[in-house]
Design a protein around this nucleic acid. Sequence first.
DNA 1: TATGAGTTTAACCGAATGGTCAAAATTACG
DNA 2: CGTAATTTTGACCATTCGGTTAAACTCATA
Lengths: 208, 208
Amino acid sequence: MDKTQHTELKILEAARLVFHQKGFNGARMQEIADLAGINKALLHYYFRNKESLFEKVFNETFCQMASKMSEIFLSEMTLMSKIGIFVNFYLNFISRHSYVVQFIINALHDKPEQLREVILKQNLVPELLLEQIRKQLKEEMGLDIDPLHVYVNILGLVVFPVLAKPLIQSMFKVSDERMETFFEQRKKIVPTFIENALKGYEKDKSLV
Amino acid sequence: MDKTQHTELKILEAARLVFHQKGFNGARMQEIADLAGINKALLHYYFRNKESLFEKVFNETFCQMASKMSEIFLSEMTLMSKIGIFVNFYLNFISRHSYVVQFIINALHDKPEQLREVILKQNLVPELLLEQIRKQLKEEMGLDIDPLHVYVNILGLVVFPVLAKPLIQSMFKVSDERMETFFEQRKKIVPTFIENALKGYEKDKSLV
DNA sequence: TATGAGTTTAACCGAATGGTCAAAATTACG
DNA sequence: CGTAATTTTGACCATTCGGTTAAACTCATA
């Protein structure tokens, strides 16, 4: 059937918008129904309840993020190229989907378990990603650093400014326009920052 | 009267706990009342409504964070010493108050305006902080980098891992104990990472 | 001890919200 | 076309939740 798929898609799209912006607690089933242009009862006809609808949206969103991350970091390039591409891609992606990261972090904060089943169901193997980074750190830069720290550093430099955007803006009176150039600048600054940092480790390898 | 202050403090303490962990939407006035060991009506006797109670908690929490940041970065030390101390202090503080950052970010996401009045009321001048960093970058390291980028980088490296703790743990199957040593390691890794990165810029000052 | 302001409580209210149900509309199909 | 299955709707329900009210209790003080 075509029509039922169409409504289901419309519901999911509406749910995505509302859940991303307001989170589980802030979202209203009525608002999702309205946005999808349907009756609230129909919402429950397609998705048993709020939880299951939220779960669908969460899985979908998380997979989208995670698969792109894997794709980049498991590809055939130098580590520094990957980092450059990653930073660039995510700063673009996130500015168009600014709620996504906060959505994921909040969802996981409330229900940390829900991630493992997604990972299993989607055959994601995050450990491979770390192993790949470790290998490239060693082979390309002669570094014996814990890849998790490096990975978390990269994510932090990219993701945090997006999360903290409202904080930064109202704290330092940054206009929307200047904020946009700020993010644009980071596409260059962050990769250089990371490269400098990693190259600095080569000289003294003492620290873990 | 002593008794009234006592109840007010008990309320604020309870409200802090609940709001920090569950946010505005997730928090229930009843739960706060229970935790404070009082009647729900008494809650509204001391604080007009949920919003005003939340605002109190938010202001208090934010000021606590911000004032310590200012204190460190406006003190008389080299920039690198400040960074070391900052990283150390916040990794300790945050691990004991793990919800605080997420609480602030979420609150600001929902109501970005509420920050400015806090800043004004508390006489915080965030611009001074940036100016100080700019000056020290220039004088101590010969760098002409936008201090906002540097500041955001520092925050990102410290704060993001805390926000993403549940993500990291379930994604890479990290045990609670290993997570604790992970944060402990960062007290050394992050300052070195930043120092390396900044020193790397000295060689080619081309980038913004 | 009587008074009155300040404090605390139990009971209650109205609106919002997630969810249900039975009937109506639409579609699939023999 | 007729009938059964699927899809959609409006009305409705139970519960939760923020907030109110009026009465009761506490306690300082005159």
